[in-house]
């Protein structure tokens, strides 16, 4: 079980969170009309083996979206910040 250091709530069990996928993709501006930009945001992923920036949502806690830095092999978490404080 992963234990995620939520900046608001402290170290909490994975079961309080829901996963939000790759946090390295940037949502295009609302005015963006190029489908390719949207495809990159919605569908295509780096899927690295190793360091991964990813969203977690503290649904059963502070309800903040977090950007967690985690290794996809060792599962070690090396960073966790509020998504709103990470420039996408």
């Amino acid at each position: 079980m992963l234990r995620i250091p939520c900046p608001i709530c402290g170290l909490r069990d994975e079961t309080e969170f829901s996963y939000g996928g790759d946090a390295s993709v940037k949502r295009p501006a609302m005015a963006e009309t190029d489908p390719k930009a949207w495809m990159d945001y919605v569908f295509y992923r780096g899927n690295p083996r190793g360091r991964h920036l990813e969203y977690w949502h503290h649904v059963q806690g502070c309800r903040q979206w977090l950007v967690v830095e985690r290794d996809t092999v060792s599962h070690v978490i090396s960073g966790c910040r509020l998504a709103r404080e990470v420039s996408p």
């Binding site: 829901s18 939000g20 946090a23 949502r27 969203y55 949502h57 649904v59 309800r63 903040q64 979206w65 509020l82 998504a83 709103r84 996408p88």
Partner: peptide, 11 residues
């Protein structure tokens, strides 16, 4: 709700 929060907090 989760989707709304995601949009507001990440984008």
């Amino acid at each position: 709700l989760a989707f709304a929060e995601r949009l507001l907090q990440t984008a």
